[in-house]
Amino acid sequence: MNAGRPRAARFPWWWLGAASAVLVAVTAVAIGTGPFDVPFTGIVKSMVDRLPFVSVDSGLDRTSDAILWEIRLPRVVLGVIVGSMLSAAGAAYQGVFRNPLADPYLLGAGAGAGLGATLAIVYGPDVSGWVIDPIPLAAFVGAIVGVGLAYILGYTVRSGRTAVTLILAGVAVAAFLTAVQTFVQQRESESLREVYGWILGSLATSGWDQVRLVFPYVLVSLAVIVFGRRLMDVLSVGDTEASSLGVEPARVRGVLVAAATLGTAAVVAVTGLIGFVGIIVPHTVRLLTSASYRVVVPLSIVLGGAFLVGADMLARTVQAPVEVPIGVVTAFFGAPFFAVVLRTSKAVVS
């Protein structure tokens, strides 16, 4: 009589532990790194002091305390949230479309957000004094509209409603929205720099407001993706077989794409388009551990957060005081790392 899963098919808890340790380490270094020197012991004491029923003198002056709590911590926390969200969304898109090249922007979320933000930057009113900044709102709406259009187009084609028709519809919608965005951008060249800066993404304006803004969306999105990870494994045998195993492929795909899009739209709205994370992190996890989404999703969430916080730390330090766009850093350092993993791993990307 055999009991339980065989060793090779068990969840690799030690990998999750190692990834969590990496996240904690990267986060700690990122909080302690910046142009203004804040002593690490003071940081730890200040954080302990904020715990309920605990009172510790951090020894930090008001400036250091403000830098820690109003600048560095919200930026690092937002980095973790955004990195986790983009990685999980990338994994979800790759799972439901059975396409290793899928990323969170596949169905037009990126192009829609880009057009929305560009329109808000170019034609938007002066936002000083506004309660709601119209740029993130326009980006959020643009991302949802982009994916919505792709879904409507993909699911009304005569040849049949498949993952491939949906991807092709997404490609068409993204190309169209990007064309409109580029046209607007070229016509209003004085906003070029601002638009370009938004498209390359940044965590520079992060504050607790941004964290509070994205957190509920990301929480819902991640919960749906985490709970749906087993179904992504079922979809990996194709729609016909998945259906014969008891899964409605179109419904599962719709729910997971909606969740991934909601979270992606929220984070893109506050940070701009940060590329590469949604592809590189899930694939690295896949190459190092397992192709099963039971493993890929949770590990991508943890390592995605660590990856983006690390990339952001480099973005704000390598050319300080000028910040390098984070999208440049994720690709510049991420691509060689990914190449090494790709070359040395025995696993094969399907």
Partner: peptide, 13 residues
Amino acid sequence: PQSPTYPRGMTVF
């Protein structure tokens, strides 16, 4: 089916 799909990276279990 006649040609089932065997996803790369999935264990037999």
